[in-house]
Computed example of a mutant assay.
Amino acid sequence: MNNFDKKLKNELNKIAEDTYPSDFVKNKIDLKIENMKKGEHKMKKNKLAIVACAALVLSIGVYATGKITGTISSSSSNYNYTEYIDVEKAENKAGFDAEIPENLGDYKFDGITMVKMADLDEKNNEINKRKAIDVAYKNESDKEITLHIDRIFDNQEPLSKEPHMEMRNINGINFYYTRLESLFLSNGAELTDVEKERMEKDPFFNVGYGDIDGEREKNFSKHILFEKDGLKYSLMTDDSMDVNEYFDIASSIIK
């Protein structure tokens, strides 16, 4: 590693050191990329990848245990599988059997993306390397729900200790709900004093940097997380989803 690489790495660590831990980071970036693909931003594919990677790195947080300092992930912008019958292939690649329904309410199976993931320890070593699964569902209006499925490791923070707005116990399983606000900035942009304070104190406010278009952008996303049989399930959708409907959809996965 040359001096520039070392300096860059140190600066990124400084930026990340005061942010909150979040299992929503991957979903936040996926939502942003999905919005871009729908025409909100006209950009080339390679530029999209740069934006996603930058936001992922700068959104790494510090867990209270002191063992895991963040989580990194990478995936293709295209589906690896487009047929529901290929669910078993995805499970074989990930190395686990999961609850993956063909439909979530009015949302129909659309495709599967394999995700490479790893946690980072205090020395930035990659640990808990694994493959996770993202399943996309769409309704007739082309609105989307993404189901992210990942393995649970003993040294990871339990969901009950992560920030959440509401918890509902359904059929003996705890479902954790959060509405997340994300602010996207171009590289080099500065936060206002209010934004700095929110980033330090508000676990439901995330900031991502990337060479987007030079403008500040905000969006809101809704998330529900739960654990079952050694797996963590995380659902992400846009802000239009009714909360009660969202809980019904999430709980249908385990019924």
Rank of each mutant, 00 (worst) to 15 (best):
F247G: 08
K14T: 07
K116D: 12
Y79K: 04
A90R: 10
M165T: 10
G70Q: 05
E200L: 12
E91D: 08
N219K: 12
N139A: 03
K89W: 02
H223D: 14
Y81W: 01
S73A: 13
M199P: 04
G188T: 02
F184M: 14
M165E: 12
K28W: 05
K6R: 15
D242A: 07
S182L: 03
D121Y: 02
S240M: 06
E11F: 04
K228Y: 03
S251E: 13
S160P: 14
D18P: 11
I224S: 05
E34W: 06
D150Q: 12
L183M: 13
Y177P: 14
K143N: 12
S240L: 11
G66Q: 05
D238T: 08
D30G: 13
K89C: 04
N13V: 07
E195T: 00
D86Q: 11
N35T: 05
E157I: 02
K222N: 10
N219G: 13
N13C: 12
I50T: 12
K28V: 14
L191H: 04
M114G: 07
E34V: 13
D202N: 13
D202V: 02
V51H: 03
L12I: 07
T69E: 06
A136H: 04
E215I: 11
K143A: 10
E83H: 05
F204G: 11
D193S: 12
E166L: 07
S59A: 08
A55G: 15
L159V: 00
E162H: 05
F175G: 10
A49S: 15
M36C: 11
V243D: 09
N171A: 12
R179Q: 14
I152V: 05
L120K: 03
I60H: 09
A16N: 09
V115G: 07
S74W: 04
D5P: 05
D248M: 09
K143C: 11
I15Y: 09
P101I: 01
S74F: 10
D213R: 03
E83N: 08
S252T: 03
N92Y: 01
I249A: 08
C53A: 15
N219Y: 04
D211A: 12
M199L: 12
S186C: 06
E91A: 09
L235T: 01
S221V: 06
S252A: 10
E162A: 13
I224N: 06
R151K: 07
G188L: 00
D121I: 03
P158T: 08
E195I: 00
M36L: 10
D193H: 08
S59Y: 01
F220V: 10
L147Q: 06
D238W: 01
E162M: 14
